[in-house]
Design a protein around this nucleic acid. Structure first.
Lengths: 203, 203, 203, 203
DNA sequence: TATGAATGAGATTTCATTCAT
DNA sequence: AATGAATGAAATCTCATTCAT
């Protein structure tokens, strides 16, 4: 794409933001180019001036997400069964929630099977795989041999993603803080036991 | 719809099955009525004899799923931090995986925001809520006061659903048995500690 | 068509009556074979056992109407500018109203331009022409040379038909007796002056 | 619908005109959207850009007709039993014939029971009612107490409409001028007597 | 004689994309 | 750089008619 002046960059941005918002509301397939241009106060002609089709706009959004997710994954430090480790974990999960709030629709759509077939959908899978791999490294450092670290990491990612999704789309009524607390707790517990205590059976 | 004779019931069944299959392959939105009738060896006219549109066929499928999920949820016994309890848990998760294999596309689509707006989408949310509620009961029996049992249950459902989804759509390479093992382990660990270490008993 | 047993004749009659009723409600084109068979408590198969298509059922109805209209037209005696002549006219118009109540939809549809093109539509025109011709004869006996008797007759038929139509479909609120009275008065007046009096201008 | 530029307004107009023409030729129900766009040299897509379906185009036409009929009704002066009054009446009837030539199909369809049920059909009835009401006023000024002026007015409207209809659809062979002459004569005669003889003045 | 099921041609409608200004 | 209008391929949906029992 040719170089853009300030006005052009601004229009492009407006379209991207509108896209993100409509995708979030209606999902990828139900989104009409018309919805996007209306929200961006632009015209069809303008849309095709910046993107050659709907998928390309989506791809552009997806690249933004990918880079942010990458950064986020890199900031996860070693997992530790100490109070400090626990609160670090919580803080990190909170950051994930922030990210999801902005880009959830794209993340979700990207990993949807409906686009999952196309060569482009692969990128979505990679996004997930990449993100999981980073967690994997941390999980592997602490997990017992009994569980396969890779799958554990994936399960945790799955939980993170879905719970945020339910919360975001308000399919279930969850308080955001309670959600983050619980995600931290469950993650922590599944790695270290709920407080690192020794086993004991219930009477 | 009027009562159906044997032939009619059979045709309707064929359409439902074809629908489930195509939804699983292409996703809800990318599915064309044409795909369904071709797979069912029926004509367009026949389709509209039984369902007034794609959504109605989907709804019918969804009702089937709902009832099966209900049954499944009811079979989950008390969670126990014993070897028996653990293998019961694993068996139950395996059943969930079976169900997901057949009906995953419907479950997933149903809980997707894309249909989630319509009055009908509510049913999907209810499905999830219901299912989670059953788990909630079991989780509440064993969880510590620190974690909100409802959210824990939801997190577990989220993990169950997503991991099965990743596996089914082959977005990540997981061995089915490894997946089930790990789901059991993570669930068990998050409730009782990673090696059977139970959380502090409730006051 | 083959000879019919009692049951067959009965079924055929049920279909004809249902047809007349649905045509009256929805008009010819908007009438579905399905509407007819439902009302007649019969099946599609049965319909095509008796009529080869919708038009043929209509044609059968139309033939019934035609013969009744013919009979009615024949009963119109000479028009006379006497009280007796006037009440005879009124009685005749009342009979027309009766006929229209039963068969109005068919009459109307038949003369609709929408079917008017087909070779069959010609019959409808003929119906009208025939009926008008009978009136023509009577009008010609009494009308002045100034007016073309044929057109006067047609105008009267037009008025008869339309007013009954408006009344029947309740498009305007008219009392049946008032309608018949007025039709008689207007017809009488347009032929003889309102009471046969000599001209006088209003002050 | 958004504001239209010159080109848009032009296209919309072309579609309306084409619609009026096809409706006139084939009638409302037999008219296909395809017929309209072909005649207007436009595409299906374009049609749905301006009207959401056939009915809406019809409604737009109907509104035009309504306003023209309104105007026409307003131009009818007092009815007078003088040579001048008579020729004024004739001139007015001629204008009605002009209007009917252009919009007859719409008028007819609109007052047909086939669309008469819907909330929109009400407008058609109102059209008729309104138009009749205007005539009513004039008729009431001159009619005898014996006839209900309202019904007389309606009968006249009925005659006007139907006779024009027969003429337009060529269901009967009438010369246009003869038709107008006769309509004037019959109307005049039914109000003032066949040769200018006025009915008894009102008490 | 009666029927419920099936058909498919033809209609309507949508919407991503292109065009002319 | 921006736009409103136009397009047409592809989808949905309808319904008169036929078929098998």
């Amino acid at each position: 794409m040719r170089e853009l002046r300030a006005r052009g960059r601004n229009t492009r941005r407006k379209l991207l933001d509108a896209g993100a918002q409509v995708f979030a509301t209606k999902g990828y397939h139900a989104t009409r180019v018309d919805d996007i241009v209306k929200l961006a106060h632009a015209s069809h002609g303008t849309f095709y001036l910046y993107f050659s089709n709907k998928e390309e706009l989506f791809r552009a959004l997806a690249e933004e997400v990918a880079s942010e997710m990458h950064e986020l994954a890199a900031t996860l430090g070693p997992l530790r069964s100490t109070p400090d480790g626990r609160s670090e974990l919580r803080a990190w999960i909170e950051q994930f929630a922030d990210l999801y709030e902005r880009y959830g629709a794209v993340i979700r759509t990207w990993t949807e099977a409906e686009i999952g077939r196309s060569e482009f959908g692969k990128l979505g899978t990679d996004l997930l795989t990449q993100f999981t791999r980073e967690l994997h490294r941390r999980v592997a450092e602490v997990t017992t041999s009994e569980m396969e670290a890779g799958v554990v990491a994936l399960a945790l990612v799955a939980m993170l993603e879905r719970l945020n999704y339910y919360a975001l789309t308000q399919q279930v009524r969850i308080d955001r803080d309670a959600m983050i607390d619980t995600l931290a707790s469950v993650t922590y517990a599944s790695l270290f036991g709920s407080d690192g205590c020794a086993p004991s059976t219930r009477s």
